[in-house]
């Protein structure tokens, strides 16, 4: 499944993760796992809206796990180690005023996922790959 994510559109942010959630539920994936996938994907999706003017998300579902790959062509993450710290945020003021950008995005993704891979290149963009296993 491929979703495109509109940039700077907070109103529709979350549509991709909603779609993925619906699909996983139809497949009979257990509720707690669907929830983790939805939260992780939502945070990643939101990151592309806040920092990169949107991007795209690809969801590949396997019998025992799901891979979520969220890609943007934004500014990249200068220091991944720093970005993984709770409370660290480089979100623009507009996003913070709406209650986003509290510096919990990547740490929360990490918390929800079984494996997390962040590939980023300054000025070129970022790809976040999340693996969530179905066995609890």
């Amino acid at each position: 499944m491929t979703f495109s994510i509109d940039g700077s559109d907070f109103i529709h942010a979350g549509e991709a993760s909603s779609g993925a959630k619906k699909a996983l539920t139809k497949l009979g994936v257990k509720a707690p796992v669907v929830k983790r996938a939805a939260i992780a994907m939502y945070e990643a999706e939101l990151n592309t809206v806040i920092h990169a003017g949107g991007g795209s998300a690809e969801v590949d579902i396997y019998p025992d796990h799901v891979l979520i790959r969220v890609t943007d062509h934004g500014p990249g993450i200068p220091d991944v180690r720093l970005a993984m710290q709770e409370g660290w945020s480089t979100a623009p003021e507009a996003a913070r005023e709406m209650g986003f950008g509290a510096g919990m995005g990547l740490p929360n993704i990490k918390k929800q996922s079984d494996e997390l891979l962040i590939e980023t290149e300054p000025g070129r963009g970022t790809t976040v790959t999340i693996r969530i296993n179905f066995t609890v």
């Binding site: 539920t25 497949l27 009979g28 994936v29």
Partner: peptide, 10 residues
């Protein structure tokens, strides 16, 4: 749910 079995459901 589309099917009880996840492979079938997929």
């Amino acid at each position: 749910q589309l099917d009880e079995d996840i492979v079938q459901a997929m």
